[in-house]
Amino acid sequence: MRTGRRTHLLWAALFSGLCLITAAAARAQSPPPAASCQPTPTPIAAKPAEPDADAGGIRVFLYDADKKPLARKRFYLLRRSAFSAGIDWASMPRRADFLQGASPQLREWLARHDCDSLYCPEFEAEFPEAVKTVPEFKRAYDDGLRKYRNEKLALKWLAVNFPLRNVRSEYFQRKRAWLERAGQQAGKVVSFMTDEKGRAIFTGFKAGDYYLSNLFPFGEGGPVWDCKVTTLPPNPRQMWAVTYLLSPPAKQTAPSP
């Protein structure tokens, strides 16, 4: 069923070209490297029966190049290709820019997990330890204890009393705002987070062509995918399963952070 070879090559060629251009345009922050997708089965381009017909549903499976599922990752179903929507890639926020005032201990602690805000469960699980070793958390805990006179509460509400808002959630908020704008420009239909098997289901949208993209790289310097999705299940009202193999960027051009 892998007849998508040719398209794959074409994409690869296109994107290596794109990467070359981006490498040339040496900016403070260049656009993320584009990467190709390999759908199985290959979408067959054909017109839907009626232009505004309801599409049944698509179930997409997203795998990385090593065939590992891309679990709990946010993707967008777009009306337009991400790379031709005029998105301002240079204004993408970077985590490193939101660490002003952080102590060395806090920086080290933050580097342990790949989280956009202090609120992710990995961090929360380590709060009890952090109040002992990280000065900012210690302060937040002492503040809480003074206010609520309850150790459990001081720990549970640690983030409320955390002194550095930029570290706590400002990156998350800026990223959210950036994605909102980018999504608008690319004609966002819906966003979704894949489940643990890298799966996502869309239902209740109109038949037509869409693009599937993460819009924002999962890791700094990581790729942005821009996959064409053709909603053409054998029976337009039923669920159609498509697997996407999302390859790494055609040419590794990880910009130095």
Partner: peptide, 9 residues
Amino acid sequence: QDVMARAPS
């Protein structure tokens, strides 16, 4: 979901 998002460790 994004606030509490995490990569499977």
